[in-house]
Structures are given as C-alpha cells and as structure tokens.
Computed example of a mutant assay.
Amino acid sequence: MVPLPREKAVLLIEFEQLLDALAATPAILRHKPSAIEVMDGFILNHARENPAMDRMRRAILQTDDPGALLCVELYAERADELPPRLEAIERDLPPFPCVHRRLMALPDQARVWGFREASLGLSMAMKGDEKSLSFVEDTAVKPEVLRDYIDEFLAMIRRNGSSSGVYAHASVGCLHVRPVVNMKTAEGVARFEAIATQSADLVLKYGGALSGEHGDGLVRGPFMEKMFGSALYQAFRTVKHTFDPNGVFNPGKIVDCPPLTSNLRYGTGYRTPDPPTYFDYSEYGGFGRAVEMCSGVGACRKKLEGTMCPSYMATRDEKDV
C-alpha cells in the first residue's frame, strides 16, 4: 500500500509536434513525476465534434491547434515543495516550440484528467465506416527511444495508407496507437493485418513489448512465438496442454491462435443494418452507423455528472442506452 499524496500539481505543455513532446519526455522523467500522459492532435481535434468535450478542450489549451499535449503530474508532501520542482522541469525542457502552464488547484487538475480519460471515446467516435481501432494499441518501449519508435511507427502506418491517433502513458513508453481502418472492405482487412504484422516487427527492433498493460488474446496471440522465441513459446504450449489437454479453457489465446483475420466483428461480408427510424440519423450515415460509433466505454451510463444518455437515465436499463 502506498499513502495518497498530500499535494499535487500538473504541468500542461503544448507542443507543435507530437515527436517533440516525446523527445522531451526523458528530460522530464529525470525530475521524477508521478505521471506523464500525452494526447496528440488527432485526439485533441476530435474533441471539437463533441460540444461538452470541446468546452473542456478550450478551457485546457492555451493554443488553438497544438500537435500534442503533455500532462505532467507531480506529488509532494508539502505544497511548497511543488513550485521548485515545476520550475526545474520548465528550465530543463528541450528547446522545442512549446507553451506551458501550471495547474495547482484540484478542480483544474480534475478537468484535465477527465479530458484525458475521454481519449478512448474521442478516438473511436468517428462517423463513417473508417474507425480508429485498437489492435496495435499496447506496445511499449523504453521512454528513451519512444520518440524514434513512434516516428517509425507512424511512418509505417502512413505507408499502409492509414492515419492514427496517439495517446496514453509517455512516462513508461506505452502509447495507445490506433490506426484508422475500414474493416468492412477486403482492402481494409488486408491493411489491418499488414499494420499488425509490421508493428510486431518494429517493437522487437526497439527491444519493446507487444503488450505493455493489456492482454495478448486473439489480436496479439499470432505474434507470441515471434515475441518470445520458439523455445519459450513451446514451453507455453506444454503448460497449456498439460493443464488443458482438451483445449476447453479459453482456447486460441496466447498459443495455437487462429489467424488474425478470423473472428472479425465486421469483415467483407458485413452489411450495416439500416432500419427505418423516426429521428433523422443521416448525419451519421443512418441509425446503424450511429450505433457503430459506440466506443463501448459506457460513458453514456454515468449518473453523477456530464452529458449522458437520457433514455438510460429514465429507465436505468442498459437495453435503453
């Protein structure tokens, strides 16, 4: 157990370029922050499409269109310990174009972390059939090489004809990279497979891990032998088959996995339902595509604050979400 910190501060640093933010991270880490979180321009710009999130975005940012936002959190036992540490970080920032400000009040800090927590929903709630998907979102490398790794990662995604949002835990080198792919087309499925395969090769090149904080499961299972080597992979198989000789306990995970392109939610044979509705959903491409914008984070079910689903608030039944 670790005692809760008595005092906190957050330093917000806006950079023109995501890679500059990642290059600055090792210098900030020398000052022992409790966290360094990053959101790129893709995430920040998607907040404009949600009125509540756009208000938060404008309240947080000093510039209109930064390429990335670093959120640096510090803990201390006494409030007077925080300003000197903040000054030291500001002084040691590499000479990249950036602006920064301190947040000492807890409500201001809570607003920032609430915005950061919305990153997943912001990245996924895209109109149309192209979606920002979580299939290479958990790779991790040393923070010292994070800038170069992400530079190569994003270049690889562009070579495959896609773009991506980037956010999460810069302090530990674990960023959630979510390429935009249309999984309803053969071209999109091929792009999905190519990006996944090439990202596994890239993270190994940088001595990293495919799964920094999430599991492996179906989406990373096909790369386990590449990641751990044949000897260790065969040991995994031996353990699995010893305790589960008939393969009834969660089969096809970690070892003996099915192909990456099986078990797809959509795929080339999927057709989006388009039922008749009273309300107009043409802005989203119809009711079916409006449903497909759901990120699954369950924010529509929150009861205490912010925008929520009116029908759920009335019935408290998930079928009405």
Score class of each variant (00 low, 15 high):
residue 107 P to A: 00
residue 126 M to T: 13
residue 145 V to E: 09
residue 113 W to C: 02
residue 131 K to N: 03
residue 132 S to Y: 05
residue 125 A to G: 06
residue 108 D to K: 00
residue 141 V to Q: 05
residue 139 T to H: 14
residue 144 E to H: 13
residue 132 S to D: 04
residue 123 S to N: 13
residue 146 L to N: 11
residue 111 R to S: 02
residue 113 W to Y: 11
residue 111 R to D: 06
residue 139 T to G: 10
residue 146 L to C: 09
residue 138 D to Q: 02
residue 116 R to G: 08
residue 122 L to E: 04
residue 126 M to Y: 09
residue 115 F to E: 07
residue 128 G to F: 02
residue 124 M to D: 10
residue 141 V to F: 02
residue 120 L to P: 01
residue 118 A to S: 15
residue 128 G to Q: 04
residue 117 E to I: 04
residue 123 S to G: 12
residue 141 V to C: 07
residue 126 M to S: 13
residue 138 D to L: 06
residue 121 G to W: 08
residue 134 S to F: 10
residue 126 M to K: 14
residue 122 L to D: 04
residue 111 R to F: 00
residue 137 E to Q: 13
residue 146 L to V: 11
residue 109 Q to A: 01
residue 143 P to R: 04
residue 126 M to G: 08
residue 136 V to Q: 01
residue 117 E to L: 13
residue 114 G to F: 06
residue 143 P to W: 08
residue 127 K to F: 05
residue 144 E to F: 08
residue 131 K to D: 02
residue 137 E to M: 11
residue 121 G to R: 06
residue 136 V to H: 02
residue 145 V to H: 05
residue 131 K to A: 06
residue 113 W to Q: 06
residue 144 E to G: 14
residue 130 E to Q: 12
residue 121 G to C: 09
residue 137 E to P: 04
residue 142 K to M: 11
residue 144 E to A: 15
residue 134 S to G: 12
residue 109 Q to E: 01
residue 109 Q to I: 06
residue 126 M to L: 15
residue 137 E to H: 14
residue 123 S to P: 03
residue 141 V to T: 12
residue 116 R to K: 13
residue 120 L to H: 15
residue 119 S to V: 03
residue 111 R to C: 02
residue 111 R to V: 08
residue 130 E to M: 09
residue 118 A to D: 11
residue 137 E to R: 05
residue 126 M to A: 13
residue 143 P to H: 07
residue 137 E to A: 14
residue 112 V to L: 05
residue 116 R to Q: 11
residue 131 K to E: 02
residue 114 G to M: 09
residue 128 G to C: 07
residue 139 T to P: 01
residue 123 S to C: 14
residue 136 V to Y: 03
residue 143 P to G: 11
residue 120 L to W: 15
residue 125 A to M: 12
residue 119 S to C: 15
residue 121 G to H: 11
residue 120 L to K: 13
residue 130 E to S: 10
residue 141 V to A: 05
residue 129 D to Y: 07
residue 110 A to P: 00
residue 112 V to A: 01
residue 133 L to S: 06
residue 131 K to F: 04
residue 118 A to G: 03
residue 114 G to I: 03
residue 127 K to I: 14
residue 144 E to S: 14
residue 131 K to R: 13
residue 131 K to L: 08
residue 139 T to Q: 14
residue 127 K to A: 11
residue 125 A to N: 12
residue 116 R to S: 06
residue 125 A to E: 14
residue 140 A to H: 08
residue 110 A to G: 00
residue 135 F to T: 07
residue 116 R to T: 10
residue 117 E to F: 13
residue 113 W to D: 06
residue 114 G to P: 04
residue 130 E to F: 12
residue 120 L to T: 15
residue 120 L to E: 12
residue 111 R to I: 05
residue 111 R to T: 10
residue 143 P to I: 03
residue 139 T to K: 08
residue 140 A to L: 12
residue 115 F to I: 06
residue 136 V to A: 03
residue 141 V to N: 06
residue 124 M to G: 04
residue 146 L to H: 08
residue 138 D to K: 03
